[in-house]
Computed example of a mutant assay.
Amino acid sequence: MRTSIIFIIISTLFLLQACKQDLGYKEPSINDGVKPAPVYDVSVRNLPGKAALTYALPADKNLLYVKAVYKMSNGKEAETKSSYYSNSLTVEGFADTLSHEVKLYSVSRGEISSDPVTVTIKPLEAPIFTVLKNVKIVNAFGGYNLATINPDTSDIALLILKKNDFNEYEVDNKRSIYTNQNTISAQIRGLDTVASTVRYFIRDRWGNTTDTAVAAVKPLFEQEIPPTTFKDFTMPGDGVQALNGLTHVYYMWDNRYNYPFISFTNQAASGPGPNIVTFDMGVSAKLSRIWIRPYPEGSRWYYLTTMKRFEFWGSEQPNPNGALDDTWHLLGSYEVIKPSGLPYGTDNALDVATASAGFNWEIDINAPKVRYIRIRCLENFAGGTAQSVAELKPYGDLR
């Protein structure tokens, strides 16, 4: 036994000594001073405001990345890098369709650059000009509607100008739009009904800008429809109010926001189809929009029985049988988008702030004057068709 223990100890010492020996492995040098070979077979694909470059990589184990060096339209030098795992890169930041030189370099692990390979690009029209050319501004109640397209989904700013205290134009951040969506729209409200001009221009994330454009606007007259003449006008087929009769349609205009002072249909009693509520404004009006404040269940959970997809219908003289026939006009179809995108039952601070401010729903400007309003819920955030509304305010022109 003693001999075996001694043998084990000696063997262990021998292995430890062997581990300390230099087995001849060397880390590869990353600063050998050797200039890498350049890329080759470069091809160019010109795109709006940019160009995509594809190339072949040199067979160099010390290659780390490829970089492109160029000047943007604003004269500033820019640099784009792509690792050796890729054989392409994109140069961006151009606001013209002129020819530009781009120098491509292979770069080693020791940060040594190859000789440059120079290529010429000629970008297509930059996205900011496409956005500008497609801007449409239309007079609306209390302001104007602005719409355009951004087909390249570029990061752009549509900047609205205003006069400051020194009678100089500056950016109006409250009315300007910052987005990368492919369709852009805004509803500007709170303006006087006098003729004026809107000045605006487009800027990209590199600071390139278009010229300033001017549009003439003359907002249509708009006022809140006074609720003093409103009344419940429940019709055949309308939803049954929930919670043992504690909730009522007329609570939608009582300026109280919490349970039980809400309109809340009972899903079981109303059935699985779209739940409808109807009310009479008592006056005829050309409606511009309807503001709705959702009901905050549990004091803050807005996206539960809040309507997700719904419709407004209007009539001057509805059929008493409750049918949505030709005595009714579809005023608009709408969808509430939860800002955070969080799952059902989870609201963040932005969700709460957005819902508590209420939603403004634009009415089709071609719709006729109406007196009776129906709200038809197609889907709520809980997956049913029951609807809950804490408060409602129609706007338009009574004249």
Rank of each mutant, 00 (worst) to 15 (best):
I137H: 07
K133Y: 11
K136W: 07
K133T: 06
I121M: 12
P127W: 00
I156M: 12
T148P: 05
A157H: 15
A140W: 13
I128G: 05
N150W: 09
I156V: 15
I121N: 04
P151C: 02
K122W: 02
E125G: 00
N150E: 07
T120W: 03
D155N: 13
D152L: 04
L146K: 01
K133S: 12
N145Q: 14
D155F: 13
A147L: 01
V138L: 12
N134V: 03
I156H: 05
V135W: 00
T120L: 10
N145I: 08
F141I: 12
N139A: 03
V131T: 10
A147N: 08
G142V: 10
V119F: 10
P127R: 00
D155R: 10
E125P: 02
V138M: 11
E125A: 10
V135R: 00
P127H: 02
K136I: 12
L124Y: 01
Y144I: 15
S154F: 03
N139V: 03
I149G: 03
L146C: 07
L124A: 00
T130Q: 04
T120M: 12
F129D: 08
V135K: 00
A140I: 08
F141R: 15
A140F: 15
N150Q: 14
S154K: 08
P151A: 01
N150C: 05
L146N: 06
V119Y: 09
I156K: 02
F141H: 15
D155L: 10
D155S: 11
N150G: 07
T153K: 15
D152R: 03
Y144E: 09
L146E: 02
P127F: 04
T148A: 13
N134R: 02
T120K: 15
P123K: 01
K122H: 09
P127M: 05
K122M: 14
N150I: 13
F129N: 13
A126D: 06
P151R: 04
G143F: 08
K133Q: 11
I128R: 07
K122T: 11
K133V: 06
V135T: 00
G142Y: 06
N150Y: 04
D152F: 05
L146P: 09
T153E: 14
T120N: 14
L132R: 14
E125Y: 07
I128K: 05
K136F: 12
P151Y: 05
A126V: 03
Y144G: 11
F129Q: 10
A147W: 04
A126Q: 03
F141E: 14
A140N: 12
I149W: 01
T148G: 04
P123M: 05
G143M: 09
I156T: 14
S154G: 11
K136G: 06
K133F: 01
I121E: 00
T130K: 07
E125R: 08
F129C: 08
P123T: 06
A157T: 13
T148L: 02
D155T: 08
D155W: 11
P151G: 06
A147P: 03
T130E: 09
E125T: 07
I137D: 12
N134G: 02
N145S: 14
A126S: 13
I128M: 12
V119R: 11
A140M: 09
G143H: 10
N134T: 05
A140E: 14
I128S: 09
P127I: 00
K122R: 09
A140C: 11
N150S: 08
N150M: 09
I156P: 01
G142Q: 06
K133L: 08
